[in-house]
Amino acid sequence: MPSEHVAKQKRESLLCTLVGERRIGEQMEWRPVKANRVRRNLFGPVDHEQLQQDFQHMLRSSLEGAQQKWNFDFLRDMPAEGLLQWEELQSHDVPAFYHSCVVGEARKPLKPLNQGIVKEVKAHHFATVTLTENPKVAKKMSGKKSQAGKKQRQTSFTDYYSAKKQVKTNTQAAAKNLAF
C-alpha cells in the first residue's frame, strides 16, 4: 500500500527532509522516524470543575453581551427591553435554513443568569423571531405569551446566527447602527 511509504511524518522528519532537499535540490522520499508520542497531556491534570466554572462564566458573559446588543434574552428565547422591536413569525414563514435543529446529542442547557426559572427542555419547535423594519407595523411582543406556555430552549449556535443573518437581510438601517 502506498500509504506505508508516506510513513508518519513528524516535525523532525519534515525538517530533515526539507534540509536534505535543499542540499541536493531534489525531492526525497520521506524518511520514517521513530514514533514520537503525539498523544500526550502537555500541562498536567485538568481541573474539570474549574473548567466548567470558567465555561459557565464565559458563556454567561457572552450571552449578556449579546442580550445587550440585540435586546433579546437568548436564554428564555424572549425579546427584552431595548431599541429593537421583535416580531414573532411562525417557523413555516421563514426559509428552512433558519429552522432550528439539533444534531446528535443535545447540549446540556446553560444555567440561566438568575437561578430558579430553569427548565430542562429538549423540544425545538419554537417560534422563529425576526426583526422588522418599521416599528409601527411591528406587532410588539408584549407579555401576552405566558412564560410557561413558551418552552425554553437550550443555547445553540443558531442563536447567534439567525439573529445576525436576519438583521442583515431585513433591516439594513438597524444593522448599520449595530455594526459588529
Binding site: 498523544r39 497531556n41 485538568v46 473548567l51 464565559m58 446566527y161
Partner: peptide, 26 residues
C-alpha cells in the same frame, strides 16, 4: 480528546468551542 491523552472530554471540547466562537465573533 484522545490526542490530549484523554485529559479533556468531548463534551468540554464542544462547550469551549462555543466560547471560542463567541470570542472570535464567529
Amino acid at each position: 480528546c484522545i490526542y490530549t491523552d484523554n485529559s479533556i472530554k468531548p463534551q468540554e471540547l464542544l462547550e469551549w468551542e462555543l466560547v471560542v466562537l463567541g470570542k472570535l465573533k464567529w
